[in-house]
Simulated assay, not measured.
Amino acid sequence: MLRRGVLAVRGGLTEADVREAAAALAERALELPELADARTVAAYVSVGSEPGTLALLDALYARGVRVLLPVLLPDNDLDWGAYAGPDSLLRVRHGGKMALLEPAGERLGPEAVRHADAVLLPGLAVDARGMRLGRGGGSYDRVLARLEGADAEPALVVLLYDAEVVERVPAEAHDRPVHAVVTPSGLRRFRPSYPSSHGDPSKGR
Score class of each variant (00 low, 15 high):
Gly109Ile: 06
Arg3Asp: 00
Ala42Val: 03
Leu144Phe: 13
Ala163Asp: 13
Ala128Arg: 15
Tyr161Val: 00
Arg146Asn: 12
Ala29Met: 00
Val45Met: 08
Arg66Ile: 04
Val158Asp: 05
Ala125Ser: 10
Val165Met: 12
Ser185Glu: 07
Arg191Gly: 11
Gly138Ser: 08
Leu2Asp: 04
Ala116Met: 04
Ala21Thr: 02
Ala118Thr: 08
Val18Glu: 05
Glu167Gln: 13
Arg19Val: 05
Leu54Pro: 11
Val45Glu: 01
Thr53Met: 01
Leu101Val: 05
His174Thr: 13
Ala55Thr: 14
Ala21Tyr: 02
Val92Leu: 15
Glu106Val: 13
Val18Asp: 03
Leu89Pro: 14
Gly11Lys: 00
Val143Pro: 07
Leu30Lys: 05
Pro184His: 07
Gly109Val: 08
Ser88Asn: 12
Thr53Val: 12
Leu7Pro: 00
Pro154Gly: 12
Pro86Gln: 09
Thr183Arg: 07
Glu153Thr: 11
Glu106Cys: 09
His198Gly: 15
Gly123Glu: 06
Leu56His: 00
Met131Glu: 15
Leu147Lys: 05
Pro70Asn: 07
Ser49Ile: 00
Val169Leu: 10
Ser46Asn: 03
Glu102Phe: 08
Glu102Asn: 08
Asp200Cys: 10
Ser46Val: 02
Gly48His: 04
Glu148Thr: 10
Val158Tyr: 01
Gly149Leu: 09
Gly149Lys: 09
Val47Thr: 14
Tyr194Asn: 14
Ser139Phe: 02
Glu167Lys: 11
Leu159Thr: 10
Arg176Val: 15
